[in-house]
């Protein structure tokens, strides 16, 4: 175990500790052989390779963790979004850069675009809802993943407002399992995995939806193939 320890730009006060810790690690491992890389005998997916089965499973698992799931065709998306905003009595909605304008064409709710001068945390706190696309969704765990790409926005956007509406394109944004999701995600981007609304079980193990994140999560599964201009996601699958 004598891999070279090139000095890196660490803060100078700790550079001696760096050498000390690495030295102690090497001493501790002096007699230990390198363990082989892990065997990966686990499954890549636990689900039949059938888009209908996978979409139904996503729906079921999202709902099981109290996300409110809707299915619609692309052309009905604007009216569904308008209905959801009305139902929550939302007066304002945060809009990430790159969100298809058509998605909000059915509503007169005030749109707060996070472009130019970005919305401050206080602005976001005073905004009722946020609408985004996603990078992908994982059926087996009921998870949507956001990567900050077009139509998703920076992380604070989907965190501070109390209602999050997330649109998933069924045709190309749904994978069955975690192992199938990893290669489609870019670790260089900030990623947020969301499985149901914010929750806690800290008080006598009673699950309570909603502590700090959005207390309501709507997931809209768009089951029709992309209409022109209907791109909500990013590089996923490309």
């Amino acid at each position: 175990m004598t891999s070279p320890s090139t000095p890196r730009p660490t803060s100078s006060s700790t550079s001696s500790s760096r050498e000390r810790i690495l030295g102690r690690v090497r001493a501790a491992l002096a007699d230990a052989p390198t363990a082989p890389p892990a065997a990966r005998d686990y499954l890549t997916s636990h689900t039949a390779d059938d888009p209908t089965v996978i979409l139904d499973l996503l729906h079921e698992n999202l709902a099981d963790y109290r996300a409110l799931v809707h299915r619609t065709e692309e052309r009905e998306l604007p009216s569904l979004i308008a209905d959801l905003l009305t139902k929550h009595g939302a007066g304002s909605v945060a809009v990430p850069p790159g969100l298809p304008a058509s998605w909000l064409s059915g509503t007169a709710v005030e749109q707060r675009h996070d472009e130019g001068a970005p919305l401050t945390p206080y602005d976001l706190d005073a905004t009722d809802a946020v609408i985004t696309g996603c990078a992908l969704a994982i059926a087996e765990t009921g998870t949507i993943v956001l990567d900050g790409g077009p139509g998703q926005g920076r992380r604070a956007l989907t965190l501070v407002p109390d209602v999050h509406i997330c649109v998933v394109r069924a045709a190309d944004q749904v994978v069955a399992s975690v192992p199938l999701a990893m290669p489609r995600l870019d670790p260089a981007r900030p990623l947020t995995w969301i499985s149901g609304p914010s929750a806690t079980s800290d008080i006598e193990l009673d699950r309570v939806e909603g502590v700090h994140g959005p207390r309501t999560l709507h997931v809209v599964l768009v089951t029709e193939t992309s209409a022109p201009g209907g791109r909500g996601g990013t590089a996923a699958g490309s």
């Binding site: 963790y65 765990t141 900030p190 995995w193 079980s201």
Partner: peptide, 20 residues
């Protein structure tokens, strides 16, 4: 937590312009 997935998982790599 005996969940298929916990509600939130955050992943970040260094810093990102205009996000976080």
């Amino acid at each position: 937590t005996a969940e298929r997935m916990n509600p939130y998982t955050s992943m970040w790599t260094g810093t990102t312009d205009a996000d976080g």
